[in-house]
């Protein structure tokens, strides 16, 4: 009974999560005429990789993926670093105005990214950071910090107080407690935060579009928007699907590794002390 429930639940999960993605994958293998045949075909009748090669002929996609990885990894590390410190203080070091600080973060999480386009465009120009991935890294980190701080605060609060008290009696400093006790125990929360922050950065479009206008620094979502047909109005749907499939696989791989690395790394750290 339990196994049946589990199996059907998992089957639903797989169909739900993969359905549209599989559709994109099948689309990416269909030749020109089959893409919009009426009624639609499900499996490509003469599968071809023309859209995949077309993507690389049109745009430097390996470059875009590299840039997205740099921006995603950079902003995730900065956001997690800053958020761990802040969340530790908010959750564990009775400080004044902690409630107000949390509320202020929430308020700032509501600022629509589109609104930031103009002031940040200005700021980047004044600091000489136009077309710099560093600017985008900092911005993505900031956009994610409210979420990361809230998330980690919730997880840090869940750690039993006796453990921290014992560590303090052992003579550990606050930084040591954070590093050796709090972070390892909150590893699931850290990993989840890292994954969500990384993917946010991977998909962010509005700011990446206006801040990075040179092809050698552009990121994946902007790159996909650059795919075009031979004529205006034409949407090269086969190529767009191919690009989506190609750019999703590395992010899933990166996320799996990311999770292992964080969980593994922190647990090891905790044991070695």
């Amino acid at each position: 009974m339990r196994r049946l429930c589990l199996a059907s639940g998992l089957a639903f999960l797989v169909v739900f999560s993969l359905g549209p993605f599989v559709w994109s994958f099948l689309t990416s293998l269909k030749g020109g005429r089959e893409l919009f045949s009426i009624p639609p075909t499900y499996f490509p009748q003469s599968p071809s990789l023309e859209h995949y090669t077309g993507v690389f002929e049109q745009r430097p996609f390996a470059r875009y993926i590299g840039n997205s990885l740099i921006v995603g990894a950079g902003s995730t590390l900065i956001a997690l670093g800053a958020a761990s410190l802040a969340a530790y203080a908010l959750a564990r070091l009775r400080i004044r105005f902690s409630g107000a600080f949390e509320k202020a973060l929430l308020l700032l999480a509501l600022v629509p990214p589109a609104l930031l386009v103009i002031p940040l465009h200005d700021a980047a120009r004044l600091t000489g950071l136009s077309n710099s991935r560093l600017a985008l890294i900092l911005i993505h980190a900031a956009l994610n910090l409210p979420f990361a701080v809230w998330m980690l605060t919730a997880f840090f609060r869940g750690i039993p107080g006796e453990l921290l008290e014992a560590a303090r009696l052992d003579g550990l400093s606050r930084v040591q407690i954070l590093r050796r006790i709090v972070l390892p125990l909150a590893a699931p929360g850290l990993a989840a935060t890292a994954i969500l922050v990384f993917i946010f950065s991977w998909n962010e479009f509005a700011l990446a579009l206006t801040l990075l206008t040179r092809d050698d620094v552009r990121t994946v979502p902007v790159g996909i928007a650059m795919l075009s047909g031979v004529t205006v109005y034409e949407v090269p749907w086969g190529q767009i699907s191919a690009a989506v499939v190609m750019t999703t696989l590395p992010v899933v791989a990166a996320v799996i590794l990311f999770q292992r690395w964080i969980v593994g790394g922190l647990t090891a750290g905790a044991l070695k002390g």
Binding site: V14, P20, F21, L196, N203, V244, V252, V255
Partner: peptide, 13 residues
Amino acid sequence: AIALIPWALPTAV
């Protein structure tokens, strides 16, 4: 990883 895929796909596309 499968459960995560929809979140990993670009919204506009």
